[in-house]
Simulated assay, not measured.
Amino acid sequence: MTALLDRALHILSLRDHSEAELRRKLAMPSAEGRRWNRRPPAVEVCSNDLQHGVEDDAAEISQAELEAAIEYCRQNDWLNDSRFALRYVNSRSKKGYGEQKIRMELIQKGIDRDTINNAFTEAAIDRSAQAKEVAWKKFGQPLSTDRLVKIKVQRYLLTRGFSFEEIQSIYTQ
């Protein structure tokens, strides 16, 4: 378990992860998909070894080991989905993304809807003001009332994850 726990701590030291993300990364065989494990294998496997069923040194990770590592991280508060969701909401909001896009990303990261709702409630971000700031940053201040420019602004904000009501509030304030 110590090697698995070392991998978990290394992954969590780079940035916060949701529990589902960490499970997925820990369950991956060590040679696949790990950016931090870029060293080439020490021994090359020749084609004869593959035919005779000789496998590399990567041992399969048992479910019990995985659960123990996840539980250890949870007990030490290194893995907390609520904290991850709140930090993610604040971070992505500061980068100019709307609630709909952030919600979709959190769902893809394995966060449940109640935790996402709590994170948005805790963050208490004024979405209309944020949409206005994002539009001003991209298109200048004041926003043009020309129909084609309005369509362009609306399309941009929709792709950033803002709702239509938040976008309309830019022009009504």
Results as ranks from 00 to 15, higher is better:
Ser82Asp: 12
Gln63Ser: 14
Asn48Glu: 13
Val54Met: 11
Glu71Ser: 13
Ser144Gln: 05
Trp136His: 13
Asp81Arg: 02
Gln100Leu: 09
Leu157His: 02
Phe164Tyr: 10
Arg15Ala: 08
Lys152Cys: 04
Glu99Pro: 00
Trp78Asp: 00
Asp112Glu: 10
Arg23Phe: 06
Leu50Asp: 09
Asn37Thr: 03
Gln173Gly: 09
Arg15Pro: 03
Phe139Gly: 02
Asp57Val: 00
Val45Asn: 08
Glu60Thr: 15
His17Asp: 02
Ile61Cys: 15
His17Gly: 00
Val149Asp: 05
Asp16Ile: 00
Lys132His: 13
Ser13Ile: 01
Ala69Leu: 06
Arg39Gln: 12
Tyr156Gly: 05
Leu86Ser: 07
Glu32Ala: 14
Leu106Arg: 04
Phe120Asp: 10
Ala124Phe: 12
Glu165Met: 08
Asp49His: 14
Phe162Tyr: 14
Thr159Ile: 01
Gly110Ile: 05
Cys73Asn: 04
Ala8Gln: 08
Leu106Gly: 06
Lys109Leu: 09
Leu158Asp: 01
Ser18Leu: 06
Ser30Ile: 15
Gln130Glu: 12
Gln51His: 11
Gly140Pro: 03
Arg74Pro: 01
Gly33Phe: 06
Arg15Leu: 05
Leu143Asn: 01
Leu22Gly: 03
Arg83Asn: 08
Gln173Ser: 07
Lys150Pro: 00
Ser13Gln: 04
Lys132Met: 15
Asp114Glu: 14
Asn37His: 12
Pro142Tyr: 05
Met104Thr: 00
Arg92Ile: 00
Gln173Tyr: 02
Asn76Tyr: 01
Ser93Ala: 15
Leu5Ile: 12
Phe84Gly: 00
Thr121Ile: 14
Asp6Ala: 15
Ser62His: 12
Gly161Asn: 06
Val89Thr: 09
Lys132Gly: 09
Leu66Ala: 07
Tyr171Asp: 02
Thr172Gly: 04
Arg103Phe: 03
Ala68Gly: 05
Tyr156His: 14
Asp112Asn: 08
Phe162Ala: 10
Arg34His: 13
Phe120Asn: 10
Arg39Cys: 05
Ser169Phe: 06
Val45Arg: 15
Asn90Cys: 14
Ile116Cys: 12
His10Arg: 14
Ser91Ala: 09
Ile167Arg: 02
Thr121Cys: 12
Ala27Asp: 10
Gln108Phe: 03
Pro29Trp: 05
Gln51Glu: 13
Ala42Cys: 04
Lys137Asn: 01
Lys132Cys: 13
Ala64Leu: 09
Ile151Met: 07
Ala129Cys: 12
Met104Gln: 06
